[in-house]
Design a protein around this nucleic acid. Structure first.
Lengths: 174, 174
DNA sequence: AAAGATTGAGCTTTCAATCTTG
DNA sequence: CAAGATTGAAAGCTCAATCTTT
């Protein structure tokens, strides 16, 4: 029993290619299972690691941090909510709640989006920018420690290629 | 402005290698940033995609599914909570709450762990097994659709190697 | 009616505190 | 006291329903 994340259809006493399925799906073979357990472990544990560090230093998780970071990089430090939702990989509802929380901290404000008729934009406040500047160095250091310290430049390119392959299928549907 | 996840230290008007930091961290270069945005997008969106499918079919998220899957693969379909926490990449507290919920559904039961003195184990019930068997095919199909349909056998091996490199640094500390 | 956005309820997760047993 | 486990409160997330403006 390897110390592992859970399988999509676990073997052994449980579910899987035991011959009983009349017209089952194609189960994962050994190599696929190993890759899947690894990937699943990563997507479960990496957010937790990021959140631990950010919560300790800034009191927010990595999704909220992403909101601040995206805003800081935008012209006028202002982004329409629709676009911000896409950029941070979250639903509009989740983003709306997140903006509530960030507004309560005084780090973000809601403003009418210019140009677009009835859209709302989020703007990074001075306090929000100051917080981001305070927290960013520690966060970058953590990202280096967790990921880039372990990868060669070739592997970094390879990682980019992987995420390009996988992300389209995974992108949110709402 | 690429449609992207948030940067660890965003560029432009915000935070980053602008020359103002006296003794800042090593910021991410362009290649690292691209890889990071991709990886971050993946770890944000893949769990959401898994959860959507599983919630629609089973009313649970992928972490709860993992609990059932790990149990189903274990001898006696029984695993001590400590081990189960490691296997599913969750904290003991989170697991305890999760077991509460799965117990309420009748899919899991708590039992004393045999051998170990004061440990508790989770056991998969018949109903839990039946649920897993009902749900697993759809889940495997989704995992194929999201991931393995897009990867060659070589890429699957490469993915395994990647997760081996990255997971140790990321593994939970609490 | 439809797009953009918000809301509220219910569930999940986190963190710190607590309980329990050896 | 320490390991194993649970608890409760606060915060976050999801889903469906709702509000608002065009």
């Amino acid at each position: 029993m390897p110390s592992s994340q859970a399988a999509p259809g676990a073997r052994g006493a449980g579910v899987g290619p035991g011959g009983a399925e009349p017209e089952g799906p194609r189960w994962l073979d050994a190599a696929e299972m190993e890759a899947w357990l690894g990937l699943l472990g990563l997507v479960v544990e990496l957010p937790q690691a990021l959140d631990r560090q950010l919560r300790a230093e800034a009191g927010i998780g990595h999704v909220y941090y992403s909101v601040l970071a995206v805003l800081s990089a935008a012209p006028q430090r202002r982004v329409a909510l629709q676009q911000l939702a896409v950029d941070t990989g979250t639903s509009l509802s989740r983003l709306s709640h997140a903006i509530d929380a960030l507004e309560a901290k005084g780090w973000v404000a809601r403003r009418p989006a210019e140009g677009k008729r009835r859209q709302v934009a989020a703007v990074l406040t001075q306090e929000g920018l100051a917080t981001l500047q305070r927290v960013a160095p520690g966060h970058v250091a953590e990202v280096r420690r967790l990921v880039f310290d372990r990868l060669s430049p070739d592997e970094v390119r390879l990682l980019t290629a992987f995420t390009r392959k996988l992300r389209p299928s995974v992108a949110s549907a709402g």
